[in-house]
Design a protein around this nucleic acid. Structure first.
Length: 643
RNA sequence: GCCGUUGUAGCUCAGUGGCAGAGCACUUCCUUGGUAAGGAAGAGGUCGUGAGUUCAAUUCUCAUCAACGGCUCCA
């Protein structure tokens, strides 16, 4: 007999060799039907695998992330079975679970899969699932495994085997499909009740662009149809929030073939948002002691040779234009220009910290395949600044930057983000990273301390730092689930040396400043793209391109509407009138759809009493207010950036 | 950049080897109304671009550009 310890601490005895599934059955049949896998001694196992020693046990169901992953991993095997059935001779690479579902990478030779065949595959998978086949685990020796895949002519699995140790190799078989796999898997295919193959894509073998491109099929599966329906519904809803769709509907930006890919045209409504963001940034930065500068859009090649961006960054820059025998580049970043401003006059410790801010446009020749609405563009307005400071000042400066991030996030109500602390690898000092072990340690410790002190959730990523110092990237997700760096805060030890930047310290000695590169609002493009999705187009009043829409009941009240409009405009409120000869219901509907925060319905009653009937977007009729009352409320909401 | 899909009216989308279609938006007229779509008429397209096949191409073929879904890469 062996002792099994349950999550609640209860210990029960079972026959040696009992499986998690049998244990579940001993508790209840209903539970047994839901068990997908088990956590045995903190390792995820097949629920059908015999337990042969004392162990802790947690039964995993759909409600556990590990349960879901196992379910999707098994679904990938089911898909592979269907694919092999349809395309004999197909070779498989890997088929892991991902955040939403699973995929399998495969080499189909010259074959291609089209949409129809995808549907057929889906049906085939459902059929195979209904066969209720068990996923059978088998330990196999490395030579036997090699023989199996050599006979099959599958060089991909043979490649995979090379990296595996003999004695730790397992095969899994369900139905007619056998795969090299570490597992674990769900008990049987019958648990997969609902599935959808979502898309076909290319994917480089081993994720290396020099390698062959394999075919990747993505899918998702569920233990019941209802969950699949809900998931598909959620996807539909997410598509409605897509900034590309909202950006068009709300007149924020547009793209034009003649202008070029990745070069958005900001429409009047979008420009208002840019200006409001800049106003916020200017206020915030002025209060924080920043100075604003303006620099040209181009510079000579020599500037980027000095900075070190060429040749490392060359592929990401527009090709140079040559004038009078000199090559000029469109700027992809502001830092070199700012360093030249620092260097323009001798600096003393009394000038520090020097904080130079600029919202100029930069141009990056992003690969055509990565362009994505406003989130990834080739013309970007950075909310950029560089802080030059002494070693002693660095800690305060970095913390101040972090506080600024958090202040912004509070204003916008941004809660779902992860700060990624990118650290160096000490083994690569002097190669990938500047050889300043002490500075690395000090600044990394500080950055971590700042994050902990401000209760900011963050993850640490080793060997991801910039060559010049550690950095914090703020990761967010677009509504369709793509991850982006929204903002970045970087420490730089290196560029001051390259530009020979120095200041005279208290001891009358030259000293090299530290630099902080920071962009708390990232770029206007990505930030506004993000905000569109974050607010689902329903911007707070201060950001709304149109803050108040006046809806006269008929043309008899247009004159009164104009009076009201003039008064609101005098108070700085962006106001428009819908003078069209339409019924009030239609005007309201369209104003609601255009996400104007406030609508004023004006008719006989309002005109006679000098009042307004106020309607809030998404909330409905708020009743009557005087012009003064209403103006005061809106002005306050705008000035406090709330509401 | 690579793999795959798509490109028809301002928007969302039908459709066909033989004169180009709908709904919404737009213009005009009627309607002057009370909190999410009043009615009628009209205008609007070299079917992404360029070649080829054909008596005839928006439709078939090739090339090219762009967008979309991924991969690689990044704010």
């Amino acid at each position: 007999m062996i002792n099994i310890t349950f999550p609640d601490g209860v210990i029960r005895q079972y026959e040696n060799g009992v499986t998690a599934l049998e244990i579940a059955k001993s508790i209840s049949e209903g539970l047994a039907r839901k068990v997908l896998a088990a956590k045995v001694n903190e390792q995820v196992w097949d629920a059908a695998r015999p337990i042969t020693e004392d162990a802790s046990l947690k039964l995993l169901t759909w409600d556990d992330n590990d349960g879901k992953s196992t379910f999707w991993h098994s679904s990938a095997h089911l898909m592979a079975e269907a694919v092999e059935n349809m395309f004999p001779g197909v070779k498989f690479w890997v088929g892991p679970p991902v955040e939403n579902g699973f995929y399998y990478d495969m080499d189909l030779g010259d074959r291609k899969i089209n949409e129809e065949e995808l549907e057929y595959l889906e049906k085939k998978m459902s059929e195979l699932a209904k066969q209720n086949n068990s996923y059978i685990r088998k330990e196999i020796s490395k030579p036997d495994a090699i023989q199996y895949f050599t006979e099959k002519g599958d060089e991909y699995k043979l490649d995979l085997l090379q990296g595996l140790e003999d004695g730790k190799i397992t095969f899994y078989t369900q139905g007619n499909f056998t795969d090299l796999c570490r597992g674990p898997h769900i008990p049987n295919t019958g648990l997969i009740k609902a599935l959808k193959l979502t898309n076909i894509a290319g994917a480089y073998w081993k994720g290396d662009e020099r390698n062959k491109m394999l075919t990747r099929i993505y899918g998702i599966s569920f233990p019941n149809q209802k969950e699949l329906d809900e998931y598909l519904h959620m996807l539909e809803e997410a598509k409605k929030r897509d900034h590309r769709k909202l950006g068009k509907e709300l007149g924020i930006f547009t793209m034009d073939d003649d202008v070029g890919p990745g070069l958005p045209l900001w429409l009047p409504n979008g420009t208002i948002i840019i200006e409001e963001l800049e106003k916020l940034a200017k206020e915030t930065e002025e209060a924080a002691g920043y100075k604003r500068v303006v620099t040209p859009h181009i510079a000579k090649e020599s500037l980027y040779l000095t900075s070190g961006h060429l040749p490392y960054y060359k592929d990401d820059m527009y090709p140079p234009m040559e004038l009078e025998g000199v090559r000029y580049y469109l700027k992809a970043m502001n830092c070199p220009h700012h360093h030249k401003i620092f260097a323009a006059e001798p600096k003393s410790y009394k000038d520090l910290p020097l904080r130079l801010a600029e919202y100029g446009t930069c141009y990056r020749y992003e690969q055509s395949g990565v362009l994505f609405g406003l989130m990834r563009v080739r013309c970007l307005h950075m909310n950029d600044a560089h802080i030059y400071c002494s070693k002693e000042q660095f800690f305060e400066e970095f913390k101040a930057v972090n506080d600024m991030y958090l202040k912004y996030f509070a204003i916008f109500g941004i809660e779902k983000y992860v700060m990624r602390l990118s650290l160096h690898d000490s083994a690569k000092l002097g190669q990938k990273y500047v050889d300043e072990p002490q500075l690395w340690k000090e600044t990394e410790d500080l950055v971590r301390e700042v994050l902990i002190k401000t209760n900011t959730p963050f993850i640490e990523v080793p060997d991801e730092a910039a060559f010049y110092g550690p950095k914090i990237d703020v990761q967010i997700w677009s509504t369709i689930g793509r991850e982006f760096t929204l903002a970045t805060n970087q420490v730089d030890f290196a560029q001051s040396r390259r530009f020979k930047l120095a200041f005279t310290n208290k001891d009358n000695q030259p000293e090299i400043p530290l630099i902080i590169h920071r962009a708390p609002l990232g770029t206007h493009e990505r930030f506004i793209g993000f905000l569109l999705e974050h607010y689902a187009g329903k911007f707070p009043v201060w950001l709304s391109p149109v803050q108040v829409k006046i809806l006269p009941l008929s043309d008899k009240f247009v004159a009164y509407a104009n009076d009201v409009k003039n008064k609101l405009r005098q108070a700085g409120i962006r106001t428009e009138i819908d003078e069209r000869n339409e019924k009030i219901g239609k005007k309201i509907r369209e104003a609601e759809l255009s996400r104007v925060p406030y609508m004023l319905v004006l008719g006989e009653k309002e005109m006679n009493e000098e009042k307004l009937s106020v309607r809030r977007q998404g909330k409905g009729d708020l009743g009557q207010q005087s012009i003064e009352e209403f103006t005061n409320i809106i002005v306050e909401q705008i000035s406090e950036r709330k509401g």
